[in-house]
Amino acid sequence: MTTPAPGPTTDPVADLTTLLDQLTGDPDEPTPQQDQAAEPEPAFRNVDQFVGGYLVHVLERRVASGPTPGITWCPRWWAHPEALSRLYALWRAWETLRITDPGTGMSIWWRDHLDPHLTALTSDAGPFSRCGPDKHRDPKPLPAEPAPADVLAQLPDA
Rank of each mutant, 00 (worst) to 15 (best):
P42F: 01
P42W: 01
A43K: 09
A43L: 13
F44S: 05
F44Y: 01
N46R: 08
N46W: 02
N46M: 12
D48W: 13
D48F: 11
D48I: 13
Q49W: 04
F50W: 02
F50C: 08
F50D: 09
V51G: 10
G52V: 00
G53Y: 07
G53F: 05
Y54M: 11
Y54F: 15
L55H: 03
L55G: 05
L55W: 00
L55S: 08
V56H: 08
V56R: 15
H57M: 06
H57E: 11
V58S: 10
V58R: 12
L59E: 10
L59W: 13
E60R: 09
R61G: 06
R61V: 01
R61W: 05
R61T: 02
R62I: 06
V63E: 08
V63N: 11
A64K: 00
A64P: 11
S65H: 15
P67A: 00
P67R: 02
P67V: 09
P67Q: 04
T68R: 09
T68S: 11
T68A: 15
P69S: 04
P69D: 00
G70R: 04
G70V: 02
G70Q: 07
G70K: 03
I71E: 12
T72I: 03
W73G: 07
W73D: 03
C74S: 14
C74H: 14
C74R: 08
C74Q: 07
C74W: 14
P75C: 00
W77H: 08
W78H: 15
W78I: 08
W78Y: 11
A79W: 10
H80S: 02
H80T: 01
P81F: 03
P81H: 06
P81A: 02
P81D: 03
E82Y: 03
A83C: 07
A83S: 12
L84N: 12
L84W: 06
L84M: 10
S85K: 08
R86C: 04
L87W: 03
L87M: 01
Y88N: 15
Y88K: 15
A89C: 05
L90H: 04
L90S: 09
L90D: 08
W91S: 09
A93D: 13
W94R: 14
W94Y: 15
W94D: 11
E95P: 11
E95W: 00
T96Y: 15
T96A: 11
L97C: 03
R98L: 00
I99M: 05
I99S: 03
I99F: 11
I99V: 05
T100A: 14
D101F: 10
P102W: 15
G103F: 14
G103L: 07
G105L: 03
G105R: 05
G105W: 14
M106N: 13
S107K: 12
I108Y: 14
I108K: 14
